[in-house]
Design a protein around this nucleic acid. Sequence first.
DNA 1: GCGTTCGCTTGATCCAAGTCAACCATAAAA
DNA 2: TTTTATGGTTGACTTGGATCAAGCGAACGC
Lengths: 248, 248
Amino acid sequence: MSQTHPVNQEVTLSVIKTACSNCNLRELCLPYGMSIDELERLDDLVSTRRRVKRGDHLYRAGEVFDAIYAIRSGFFKTDVLLEDGRDQVTGFQMAGELLGLDGISTEHHTCNAIALEDSEICAIPFSRLEVLSREIHTLQHHFHKVMSREIVRDHGVMMLLGTMRAEERLAAFLLNLSQRFTARGFSHAEFYLRMTREEIGSYLGLKLETVSRAFSRFQEEGHIAVQQKHIRILNVNGLKALMHHRAV
Amino acid sequence: MSQTHPVNQEVTLSVIKTACSNCNLRELCLPYGMSIDELERLDDLVSTRRRVKRGDHLYRAGEVFDAIYAIRSGFFKTDVLLEDGRDQVTGFQMAGELLGLDGISTEHHTCNAIALEDSEICAIPFSRLEVLSREIHTLQHHFHKVMSREIVRDHGVMMLLGTMRAEERLAAFLLNLSQRFTARGFSHAEFYLRMTREEIGSYLGLKLETVSRAFSRFQEEGHIAVQQKHIRILNVNGLKALMHHRAV
DNA sequence: GCGTTCGCTTGATCCAAGTCAACCATAAAA
DNA sequence: TTTTATGGTTGACTTGGATCAAGCGAACGC
């Protein structure tokens, strides 16, 4: 590459921009709660940035695990494949969230992570994260919290799959998305779905037709406005009520 | 209490017996992979042993979290209660397994842990565990693996709830129990269920009648012998086949 | 600009599991 | 020993969501 001064400057700028210490997601992501000095030590670790094009795998089930990934921008899904060919989407991840925690257990990834739009991720080599988290207490503690939060989230999904009916599931799903978009500074009431009806259905344990019908019903009842993947929430409380419709 | 010599000796003996370094579950539990010296440092931490009677809570959702618990003996369930009164069993835990990991995230427990038989647990103060795991790399790494394993387990349950039909779920459940009993040195083919049909159903997202019917069907087909809570597995491969019966 | 593809919607029908109800078995209480 | 309570089984019926099928609209490649 050219080594002229202007280009070097540009490279430097770009490096600064990719550092955790300057990342506008740091309050959502791994750096949460860390001091300026501590952040600079984390920057060292998280130097590798990578683009993942829509439809491409970030990692695949079975591959050796050596890093977790923070989503810098974009949108992912994770899915698990059963031996008999059935598969299920286990989660949708957006900016500031971590991918790959499931791989720590066996040192192999146990699911596929696929970009649903062109995305950018920060790779965090796991063994180095363990070293650093021995030294930075806040990092250690926050990492534990993030793992625990993932467990709590999964319990919520189990609850949804085990006790809720179709419309309740979809209402819960929309409210969850809305809440996560809000946390990222986007509108809570209007967003684009990055995933298909089939992927939503897979995640919610429903068929795509059922998802589609539920969307139509919500629209008829004035809770939301749907136009393909564009969703506007017209009545949050209506959705919340729907979510707990039938206490069986 | 009496301070005579024999009694003191008994106390000492009892303390030695409760230490991780002498625990016969150490290969299944938190101490996995630790050296003798390291184990002795862990012993300090895990000094509190507690009995929990059948039906009693180890902790309740909403309580402040300050420790995780290793099951020394016995059997637990965890369940989550939704605002609208619905609840679901999120897991069954047996000797050597950890309880309470969900509480790290918010510093409050997010589920109830209830003993299904008279049990004994070791309390592990969490902040002290974090301190020690900064010093003992194997402890740190193993703890991360345990948390990750919990995430992978939950994905398995999501898979089960999202894609499997009733008989497949129950077959998977029985095989899972069998495998965990085996890992603890018990028969893989014969065991007592500690939970009711209703609790199994709640965990599997089914009604108790459906669970009961599936048991009867498995018995008719010669896969298992059921007598109340006593289960004998007669045909493991039959169950495995059942588990992947319909690749929809 | 046009055909092809992919994702979505909607309708008709079907079935697995839920619901309701009766009854049985075991264990604890009286 | 009988009574009561709790948990389990089984049958008859209902239903929510799956399945099958047709058609539509937007996006993309040629």
